[in-house]
């Protein structure tokens, strides 16, 4: 098992990539804290416990500084430490800029970028206090690298996540805290499940592999970055994109 005795927080752990990662981390021996606004996180946590794993659900809004601090405190109170943070919570709420309200822009930036900032900040504070090092995986995207029409606030936020990741990787790797980002292409998750059929087909055709990715395929990349297998990898990005950015 690659995460034996490790304690991991997964924000946005109640669905999609976050849920797949929570389940995979548990199977690999981690004590898993699912942080999410959605109550489904509680069900997943219960399910993991019933399967014999250790888990905790914390209801948290990653844009709220007190919630984020509380998420770390509850984790340490329950499991004694924090080793891994997967800052995964995010939304996709897109429009062209001339049709996008300032409120829409701020909501995406708050969750997708400031939420990562808060999760990383308080995780790093805790890891430094422990002096044990740690691994942080931030949720980037292909849109950390390339734009697409109408992907306005989302791409801006994910571009920010990439450079935040690089900067934190540089700053904290000497203390044994590795900060990296996973950058998926379009994944068949609830974020795009409700899209019309023609939109889904359009998205499929953007990937040279001719399909969307699966949440478990991203979870496995997150596991790699979070584990000791990636012990010389810091401040970088791992693309899981079916060839999207090779074009």
């Amino acid at each position: 098992m690659r995460l034996e005795n490790k304690v991991a927080i997964i924000t946005g752990g109640a669905s999609g990539i976050g849920e797949a990662t929570a389940r995979l981390f548990a199977q690999e021996g981690a004590k898993v804290v699912i942080a999410d606004l959605a109550d489904r996180g509680q069900e997943i946590s219960h399910d993991l416990i019933q399967q014999g794993y250790e888990s905790l659900f914390v209801k948290a809004d990653v844009t709220n500084e007190e919630h984020t601090k509380n998420m770390i405190e509850q984790t340490v109170r329950q499991f004694g430490q924090l080793d891994i943070m997967f800052a995964n919570a995010g939304i996709a709420n897109e429009a062209n800029i001339h049709e996008m309200s300032y409120e829409q822009w701020k909501k995406t930036m708050d969750i997708n970028l400031s939420g990562v900032y808060l999760s990383d900040k308080y995780a790093i504070e805790q890891m430094r206090k422990q002096g044990t090092g740690g691994a942080i995986v931030n949720s980037g995207s292909i849109h950390s690298f390339v734009g697409k029409d109408g992907v306005t606030a989302y791409a801006a936020a994910k571009g920010g996540v990439k450079l935040l990741t690089q900067t934190l990787g540089i700053t904290y790797s000497k203390e044994g805290i590795r900060v990296n980002a996973v950058c998926p292409g379009y994944i068949d998750t609830p974020l795009i499940a409700d899209s019309p059929k023609e939109v889904k087909e359009h998205l499929v055709n953007l990937h040279p592999m001719g399909r969307l990715g699966r949440a478990d395929e991203v979870a496995k990349a997150v596991l790699f970055l979070a584990s000791e297998d990636a012990s010389f990898i810091a401040g970088t990005t791992l693309l899981v994109d079916g060839g999207y950015t090779a074009q």
């Binding site: 592999m209 395929e217 496995k220 596991l223 693309l239 994109d241 079916g242 090779a246 074009q247």
Partner: peptide, 9 residues
């Protein structure tokens, strides 16, 4: 484990 990665990591 890397089944959706190709062309660039």
């Amino acid at each position: 484990d890397s089944s959706f990665s190709t062309g660039a990591v």
